[in-house]
Nucleic acid binder design. Structure first.
Lengths: 261, 261
DNA sequence: CGAGCACTTGATCGCTTTCAATAGCTGTGG
DNA sequence: CCACAGCTATTGAAAGCGATCAAGTGCTCG
C-alpha cells in the first residue's frame, strides 16, 4: 500500500514552516496567536488502517490533518457502512464543546495530525475571533460538501457516482493545474475499491464493474489499479451528471487553495 | 413562476416575545445586542409552495425560520431532485460571507423568517462572539444531521428510510413528551409524499407502497394521509435500522429544545 | 358536479446486489 | 527462488428491490 513513509513528527518545528499553514484553521492567526498555538500543539501520526477514534468514544483532542488522508464513517448494527467524510490536509477534526465523536475516524493512508487538547483549544477559540471565523468557514464548506454528496447518494446512478468521485479526486489532487502534456490527466486514487464503495453507497463489485466499463468506453485508463488517466476531462465531467445548480461554481475552477472538492 | 408573495409582518413586535427567542442564533445575546438586532431585523412570510430562493441566485439577506417549514434541495440537469435539508423554526438560512445560495429554498408550509441584510448581519457577527458561537454550534449540528442522512441515503432500504423519517418526525414534533394516553403516539407529517420521496431518495410510489406495508403490518396507522399514529414506538425504531454508533445519543431522548432531529 | 391534485395500487423492467469463482499482487518462509 | 497465504480486484450468473409505466381512487375547491 502506498505508505507515505513519515519522517518523525517534528513537533519542535515552527508553525511558520507548516505545510498547511495558510489553509488550516490557524490560517489567519496573528503571529502572537501562532506563538501560543505553537506552544500547545502536538504532532501525532497514525499508520494506514489504524483507527484514530471510534464512534461514541470520548476524544480529548481536536486538530488538523497535516499530511495523509483519513475517513469518517458510520456503521449500522448489521455492519453496513457509509463513509460520511474525507479528511485531507488542512481539514479539521473534532467538535469544540463536545468530546464524544460521532463517527469512526480511520487513517486511510499514514496520516499526521497537528493536535490540541480540546479544553485548551476551546479556551483559545473563545479568545481568538480569527480562528473562530476560519472554523465556521470550514464547517460551512463541510456542510456544503456533505449536501452535495447527499445528492450523489440519493439520486445518481452507479456510473455517475464513479465519475463524480473521479472528478472530485482529480480536482483535489490539483492535477488539473499541471498542464496536460498531451498524455492526459493522471492522478492517484489513494483509497481501495472498498473505501470507494463505502463512500459512494455501492458494493465493491459494482465499483469494479463500472470502472471496467468506463475503461472499455475509453473514458478513463488505468496506469495501475489506483492510478487513473483521463484522456478527456470534459467527457468525464459529462458522465458525472453535474448538477444544474451553481453550487459547483466555487470549485469549478479548482485552485490549490480550494477548500474541499 | 411562484413569486414570493409577502404578507406583512409584525416587525414592530419585540425580540423578547419571539417564539424562537431561546433557540435561534440570537439565543445567548445580551440585552443590548438584542436591542440592536431588534432594530435591524425584519419579518417576512412566504406561502406554502413559494420559492424563497433559487440555487445560484444572490441572496442579500440571511435569517432564521420563526414559524413554518422550508426545504433545501438540489436538482440535476435532467430534473432528478434531492432534498438536502429541512429548515424548522429556529434554523438559520444563509451563509455569512457568501451571497450566492447553493440550493433551492422552498416554503413547504407557510413560513415566516426573521431576516437581516447580509452585510448588516456580518458586521454584527464580527462584533458579537456569542452569536458567532451559536452559529458555529448550529452549523455543526446541521453537519451532523447531513451526515446521518448520508448513511440513510447510501445504505438503508426503502422500509428503513420511511421508518427513520417517521422516527425523526415524531421526535421533532415532541410528540414523545405528551404522555401516551393508551392511544399511542400521534403526530403530523406536514409534508407531501413527494417531499418525503425527495428527502429519502425514493419515488412517490415506493413511499406510498412502504407506508401501506407498514400499515398492513400494524407498525403504524393513518388517521388521515398526513397524520400518523404509532402504537409501539420501539417497534418503529427497530425498523429504522438505527445505527450501531452513538451519534444518536444527543437526540435519543428527544427534548423540545433539541436542535435538529 | 367536475377539474385538479395527492395518493394508492398493479404489472413489468432493469440496475445494483448477492453469491461465487478466479485473477493478480505482495510479502514470508522453506 | 519458488510456493503459498492473504489481500485486493475483477468477472460471471442469478436474484431482488426499487423504478417506471399505467390506471384508478379519493379529496378539495371552484
Amino acid at each position: 500500500m502506498l505508505v507515505a513513509r513519515i519522517t518523525l513528527a517534528k513537533t519542535d518545528a515552527n508553525c511558520l514552516d507548516c505545510p498547511i499553514r495558510h489553509r488550516a484553521v490557524c490560517a489567519s492567526c496573528t503571529s502572537s496567536e501562532l506563538e501560543e498555538l505553537n506552544r500547545i500543539r502536538q504532532y501525532r501520526t497514525w499508520k494506514a488502517g489504524e483507527t484514530i477514534a471510534w464512534a461514541g468514544e470520548n476524544m480529548s483532542f481536536v486538530g488538523s490533518v497535516v499530511t495523509g488522508v483519513a475517513t469518517l464513517s458510520s456503521t449500522l448494527v448489521d455492519g453496513r457502512r457509509q463513509m460520511v467524510g474525507l479528511l485531507l490536509p488542512s481539514d479539521f477534526l473534532g467538535r469544540p464543546g463536545r468530546g464524544e465523536v460521532s463517527y469512526d475516524v480511520v487513517a486511510a493512508t499514514e496520516t499526521t495530525f497537528c493536535l490540541f487538547q480540546r479544553d485548551q483549544f476551546e479556551r483559545f477559540l473563545s479568545k481568538s475571533p480569527s480562528i473562530a471565523k476560519e472554523l465556521l468557514e470550514k464547517t460551512l464548506d463541510d456542510l456544503d460538501s456533505a449536501r452535495e454528496w447527499m445528492l450523489l447518494l440519493g439520486r445518481k446512478t452507479a456510473r455517475e457516482k464513479i465519475a463524480s468521485l473521479l472528478v472530485m479526486m482529480a480536482r483535489r489532487d490539483g492535477a488539473l493545474h499541471r498542464n496536460e502534456p498531451g498524455d492526459g490527466l493522471v492522478f492517484p486514487l489513494h483509497i481501495t475499491r472498498e473505501a470507494m464503495a463505502d463512500y459512494l453507497g455501492l458494493t465493491v463489485e459494482t465499483v469494479s464493474r463500472q470502472i471496467s466499463a468506463m475503461k472499455r468506453d475509453n473514458v478513463i485508463q488505468l496506469m495501475d489499479t489506483r492510478t487513473i488517466r483521463v484522456p478527456d476531462f470534459n467527457r468525464l465531467v459529462e458522465q458525472s451528471a453535474a448538477s444544474s445548480g451553481f453550487e459547483d461554481a466555487h470549485h469549478a475552477l479548482p485552485e490549490t487553495t480550494a477548500k474541499r472538492a
